[in-house]
């Protein structure tokens, strides 16, 4: 199908094309119904005020947007989300990389360790959050009991965002690690042999061979995790109660969206919030792509 316009399709090719369309139709239909249509409709709704339960939509122009951009909670939520993304992505990638390097060596029990580190990934996020919620509990939580402290891990606005970030890091390390291990296995062993003969230590090898040659994997992980972290919702929703004073300083943009769209039945305003988030993620992705050209080393 390089230059389809230049020659007419034969009957056989036409049949083939028909079958091809038939085979991709379910996926395309699914995409249109489940992804494209809702996405476009969300943008449309952001210009309306909804009367609750989908009845009585009223066109209000950019009112939702002006109200949202003037509200300090929007910017606070964006800042909370960025903070969460930094707390989750940077340690999440660094720790996973170190683990991957160790678990890529031919040692006894590596597969057992790999399984252990990957386990959080197969747990239901809501269940994970519930368990952490009790670990962190100020009155009866395991953490305060073990360390004989009385810290309000998830109610003190100063530390709650870090506590939530730690859950995020813990959940995502295994996934990052597995990606790193597959990246490591693509680096030819010859480089390390040559470096060893030249007298390079393990640490030098790590910084001068592993890190540059792993950069495509690293970049992929950072980019996908960043987008994942910017759309975080379940952690805050499960861990923190509505009357938690720290919530204001931890709630993410998607949490704010949920609160308006579903709790307060203001679909239009909620839609404006997600459009705002999409634009922000697009900007972040744009700069990430610029960075890719400079920082990533492809063979």
């Amino acid at each position: 199908m390089n230059e389809p316009s230049k020659h007419k399709m034969t009957a056989a090719e036409k049949t083939e094309a028909k079958w091809a369309y038939a085979f991709i139709a379910p996926t395309i239909l699914g995409l249109i119904i489940l992804n494209f249509y809702p996405a476009i409709d969300t943008v449309r709704q952001s210009f309306y005020k909804s009367g609750g339960l989908g009845k009585g939509m009223k066109f209000v122009g950019i009112d939702n947007y002006t109200k949202m951009l003037q509200a300090s909670e929007t910017w606070q939520a964006l800042w909370n989300t960025v903070k969460y993304a930094l707390v989750e992505v940077i340690p999440g990638v660094a720790i996973a990389l170190i683990l991957a390097v160790f678990l890529n060596k031919k040692l006894k029990g590596t597969s057992a360790f790999r399984t252990i580190f990957f386990l959080p990934m197969v747990c239901a996020p809501a269940a994970v959050a519930m368990v952490w919620k009790w670990l962190y509990n100020q009155q009866f939580g395991l953490l305060n009991n073990i360390f004989h402290t009385n810290i309000a891990w998830i109610s003190d606005p100063k530390i709650a965002w870090i506590s939530v970030g730690i859950i995020g890091v813990w959940s995502v390390i295994g996934y990052n690690m597995v990606l790193f291990i597959s990246g490591l296995q693509e680096i030819p062993g010859d480089y390390y042999e040559a470096a060893a003969i030249d007298g390079a230590t393990g640490i030098r090898q790590f910084f001068h061979i592993t890190i540059p040659l792993l950069s495509p994997t690293t970049f992929f992980i950072i980019q996908t995790r960043l987008i994942g972290a910017l759309t975080i919702f379940d952690l805050m929703f499960m861990v923190m109660d509505k009357t938690n004073a720290a919530l204001k300083f931890v709630q993410s943009v998607v949490y704010l969206f949920y609160d308006y769209a579903f709790t307060k039945s203001n679909k239009g305003y909620g839609a404006a919030i997600v459009v705002f988030l999409v634009v922000f993620i697009m900007i972040v992705t744009f700069f990430m792509q610029k960075l890719e050209k400079k920082m990533v080393f492809y063979n």
Binding site: Y136, F140, T243
Partner: peptide
Amino acid sequence: PQSVVAETGTDSLFQSDK
């Protein structure tokens, strides 16, 4: 205090003899 009731519901606190 508020930080206590926000993490453990007042019913649970009561039933835990707190």
